[in-house]
Design a protein around this nucleic acid. Sequence first.
DNA 1: GGTCTCGTACGTACACCGTACGTTGTAGTG
DNA 2: CACTACAACGTACGGTGTACGTACGAGACC
Lengths: 214, 214
Amino acid sequence: MVSESTEREPLDRNAIVVRAVGFADERGTDALSMRKLAAELGYEVMSLYNHVVSKGEVLALMVDAVASEIPAPNPDTEPLVAVRALAVATRAALVRHPWAAGLWLRQLPGPARVQHMEHLLAALAATDMSPSVAHLAFHAVNNHVIGYTLQEQAMAYVAPDGNADEVAHAFLAGISAENHPHTVTHVQQHLDGDTASSFELVLDLILDGLTRLD
Amino acid sequence: MVSESTEREPLDRNAIVVRAVGFADERGTDALSMRKLAAELGYEVMSLYNHVVSKGEVLALMVDAVASEIPAPNPDTEPLVAVRALAVATRAALVRHPWAAGLWLRQLPGPARVQHMEHLLAALAATDMSPSVAHLAFHAVNNHVIGYTLQEQAMAYVAPDGNADEVAHAFLAGISAENHPHTVTHVQQHLDGDTASSFELVLDLILDGLTRLD
DNA sequence: GGTCTCGTACGTACACCGTACGTTGTAGTG
DNA sequence: CACTACAACGTACGGTGTACGTACGAGACC
C-alpha cells in the first residue's frame, strides 16, 4: 500500500480561517456552520475545536483577516489624504467580503484591526485637527465607511439572488404612490442607478466639515 | 366549575409582536426564540404560527413596531429642522430598543418604516437642496443615525453586562502602548467619557455640508 | 527494543433551534 | 343536532454549537 496520503492539508487555525472566509464569500455567514466548514476542509466537526475555541472565535478571526487586507497608508502622503485613502481601502475590503461589515462591529478588535485603528488615528493626529475633533473624526469616518457599506449591502441581503430590481419593483408595488410620493421617486432613482460614487462624495463632505470644525 | 378562564390574553399578531419587543429589550434578539416567546405568552410554540408565517416575519414586525414609535415631524417646522428632529427621534427609538439598529437594515421596510421614509424624504425635498443632493442626504442621514447607534451599541454587545469599562481595560491590557499609542489614548478618552453629544455634532456637520453642496 | 506522553482526529451525545404536519377541541352557524 | 372553521396543541425532523470520551500516531526517554 503506497501511502495513506490524503490531499487534505493539515489543519490549523489559519487553514480554518482562510476556508471560512472563502465559504462566507460564496454563501454568506448565515449558511456557515462548523459542520459544513469541517466538511469543506475534509475533516469532522470536532477536529476544528482542537485549533479554535468556539465558532465565535472563528468569526472574530475572519473579521481580523479582512482587516489585515487593508494596506497601511503610505507614510509620505499628506495626513488628510491618508485618512481618505484608508477609508476608501477599508470600504474596498468590506465590499470584497460582503459579510464582513455586519460582523465588524460585533467583535472585539483583533491584532490586524488594532493596526488599522492605529493607522487611522495616527493619520488623524497628524492633521490640523484638535485632539477632541480627531477623536470625533475617527468615529465619524468609521461610521460612514461601515454604515454606508452596510446599507448598500442590506439590499443585496434582502434580495440574495441577483434580483434586487425585482425586489425593488415588488416593494414599489406594495406602497401607494399618492400616500408616499417621495418614497416612490426615491426608489425609482435607485432603479435608474444614478447613485454611483456617493460614498466618496459624502466622505469628502464629512472630512471637509471636520477640518472646518476648528 | 366556574369557567376555564386563563389570565392569558388571546393570541394575535399584535400580542406576539408586543411581547417579542419586550423580550428583546430585556434579553436581546439572540436569546429570542419562538419557543421562549410562546412560553412568555402562555402558549405552545406552534400556536404562534397560526398568526405569523415565520420567525423572520416576527423580526420584521418588531422593526416596524419600533419605526412606528418615531413621531412625525410637526408640519409647521422649517424643513431642515424637521430633518434634524427626525434624525434625533429615530436615534432615540433605536436607543430605546438596542436590538433594533442591527435588524433595521436586514428587513424590507414595513408600513411604519415607509411612513418614516416618506417623512424624511418630504422634509428633505422641502429644503433648498437639489433633488440629487436630497437623495444623497437621505442616505447620509440614515447612515449616520444607524451607523452611529450601531457602533455605540457594539461596545454594549461585546460587554453584555454593565462591565463595558472592564472590557475596555482588558482590551487596553492586550495591546502594546509603544506600538499603538494612538489607540491607547483613544480608548482612554472613551473611559474618561468625554464623548457625549458627538452624535448631534456630527449630524449638524453633515447637514451643514449637504446644504453647502449646492 | 519497549514504554510513556501528548496532541490531533474522531464519534457519540445533548440541548436547543425553526417549523412541517396531523390531531384535537371549541365556538359559531344552519 | 350536525357541520364547519379555525385556534391550539403534540409530535417529529433535520439542523445547530459543542462537551466529553476514545483512538491513534509521533516523538522522547529508558
